[in-house]
Computed example of a mutant assay.
Amino acid sequence: MTRRPLAPPPINGPRFNEFIVSPKVRVIDQDGENLGVMYTREAMEQAQAVGLDLVEVSPNADPPVAKFLDVGKFKYEAQKKANLARKSQKTQEIKEIKMRPNIDDHDYD
């Protein structure tokens, strides 16, 4: 009986470093400059040389876009943005009335 390889743990938020599954990514450095399309391993090595992580910011693009960022700071800013959006959203309040047979038409008007 052979064992299946261990699956990576589920990640909350964007994929980063070794959790990026795409073989090639479009890389943007910490200053916002486009470094072009390169292999994920090569991009991770460059990010580690700078002291940052390689974070996948747009996974649905072709190829996916990855950026040199600090993962903790990126998650913190995303959480703050979500909290602000949740705080500023409006909820609609619905007014209810009870319809009974004994109430006349002019009471409903």
Rank of each mutant, 00 (worst) to 15 (best):
A49C: 12
L35C: 04
V71T: 08
A61S: 14
E77N: 05
D70P: 08
D104A: 06
Q30D: 11
Q92I: 14
I11K: 01
E33F: 13
M1A: 04
A49D: 15
A49W: 10
Y108F: 15
Q30M: 12
A85L: 13
Q30L: 15
A82R: 13
P64N: 08
R15A: 07
M1F: 10
G13R: 00
R86V: 08
E45M: 10
D53V: 08
D62L: 04
P64Y: 02
V50Q: 08
N60G: 09
G36S: 06
A61H: 04
E18V: 03
D107L: 08
A49Y: 14
A47I: 01
A61W: 02
K90R: 13
L6G: 04
R4T: 08
Y39M: 12
E45H: 02
D107C: 10
D53Y: 05
Q92C: 07
A82N: 12
M44N: 03
Q79T: 10
L52A: 03
L54V: 00
V57H: 00
T40K: 14
K98V: 12
Q92W: 08
I11L: 13
V65Y: 00
G32S: 01
A85R: 15
A82T: 11
K98A: 05
G32E: 04
P59F: 02
D109L: 12
E56Q: 08
G51H: 05
G32A: 03
V21I: 10
M44T: 03
I97D: 00
E56K: 00
G36Y: 05
Y76M: 11
F19C: 10
F68E: 06
T40A: 14
G51W: 04
N60R: 09
I20W: 00
